[in-house]
Simulated assay, not measured.
Amino acid sequence: MSLPPPIVLSFAASDPSGGAGIQADILTLAGMGCHPLTVLTAVTVQDTTGVEDIFVMDPEWVIDQARTVLQDMPVQAFKIGMLGSVEIVAAIAEVISDYPDIPLVLDPVLASSRGDMFANEEVISAMREMLFSQATIITPNSIEARRIALDHEDDLEILNLKQSADQLLQWGCSYVLIKGAHENTPQVVNVLYDVNGIVRSDAWQRLPGSFHGSGCTLSSAIAASLAHGMSITDSVYEAQEFTWHTLKAGFRPGMGQYIPDRFFWMESDNLEEEADGSDD
């Protein structure tokens, strides 16, 4: 018997399209050599064009799901996605507080890429108060970073991204990675901050198309890298590289957005094997 792979526990909503949410986490974690554990926070009705409805789980069910698997298996990282309610924020905060040494990646999913809202101001406030201080890294896009940092949505353009990161760090997280896909820049620039300022900045070629689940992929990939024992800076870079390649290999299975191919590397391996075989 071989040793088990690193184990990552993801708290997230179910996406029946397989593009985002818990399904994206499972595919990403498996694609990066981890064993995924899953705790459902909500069930959604959605496809690649958008979200039609959300059923939020009872917080006691969230706690029971998590406690059951955590009593059975040790985990090397936590990842949190869509939360759904203040009560679920409190439930998850209670669970993870018992594991202060386990790295936590928090992806503050506030809306779908189409703009369907997942979190109101009460949920955002609860995240700030109960989860940020427990997070190793928070991974908002630029829109989410500004919205979380400010109390009033009308003021979103006032803060620059450095100011937004500074505000998020004041709530206690160790690192903030602000994703720049929504910024008007030639390349996508993702910047990692800590209390001392910029830790690293990485620029990536913008790819054509609109993608469903890119944020879930990136945050899960960071969790996977941390579970493998990488440093935070190396984890952030490796996760970005993995995510960019999933987007480059993305496919459009339906009438809406493209879905990242989290097993892009299998196609590359197959091509290499075919090439090797042709030399025989």
Rank of each mutant, 00 (worst) to 15 (best):
S2Q: 09
V8E: 02
S10D: 04
F11A: 10
D15Y: 09
D15I: 14
A20G: 01
G21A: 02
A24H: 01
L27D: 03
L27W: 06
M32I: 07
M32E: 09
G33C: 02
H35R: 07
H35K: 00
L37D: 10
T38P: 06
A42C: 09
A42D: 10
V45M: 09
Q46I: 13
E52D: 13
F55P: 03
F55G: 02
V56L: 05
V56I: 15
D58I: 13
P59S: 11
E60W: 00
W61P: 00
D64N: 15
D64T: 12
D64Q: 15
Q65H: 11
R67T: 10
V69P: 07
L70E: 07
Q71Y: 06
I80A: 09
L83R: 12
L83D: 11
G84A: 05
G84R: 01
I88M: 05
A90L: 14
A91M: 06
V95H: 01
Y99E: 06
P100S: 10
P100V: 02
I102H: 05
D107K: 05
P108V: 03
A111S: 07
R114S: 15
G115S: 08
G115A: 07
D116M: 03
M117A: 02
E121L: 12
E122T: 15
I124L: 03
R128S: 05
L131I: 14
L131S: 05
Q134W: 00
A135I: 06
A135T: 08
A135Y: 11
T136D: 09
I137S: 11
N141D: 11
N141M: 14
R147L: 13
L156E: 12
I158H: 04
I158D: 04
L161T: 13
K162I: 14
S164K: 02
S164D: 03
S164L: 02
A165V: 08
Q167G: 00
Q167C: 02
Q170L: 11
Y175T: 01
V176M: 04
E183G: 01
N190D: 15
Y193T: 09
D194K: 08
V195Q: 15
V195D: 11
G197D: 02
S201Q: 15
A203E: 13
Q205A: 07
G209V: 13
G209L: 14
S210P: 00
S210T: 06
H212N: 03
S214T: 11
T217Y: 04
S220Y: 10
A223G: 12
A224P: 15
S225E: 09
S225A: 09
L226W: 02
L226A: 12
H228Q: 08
M230N: 13
S235Q: 11
V236S: 05
V236L: 03
F242L: 00
T246V: 01
L247T: 04
L247S: 08
F251K: 13
F251A: 13
R252F: 13
G254H: 14
G254E: 14
M255K: 13
G256L: 08
Q257Y: 13
Y258Q: 09
I259T: 08
P260E: 11
R262A: 01
F264E: 12
M266D: 14
E267Y: 15
E272C: 08
E272M: 13
A275S: 08
G277K: 12
D280A: 08
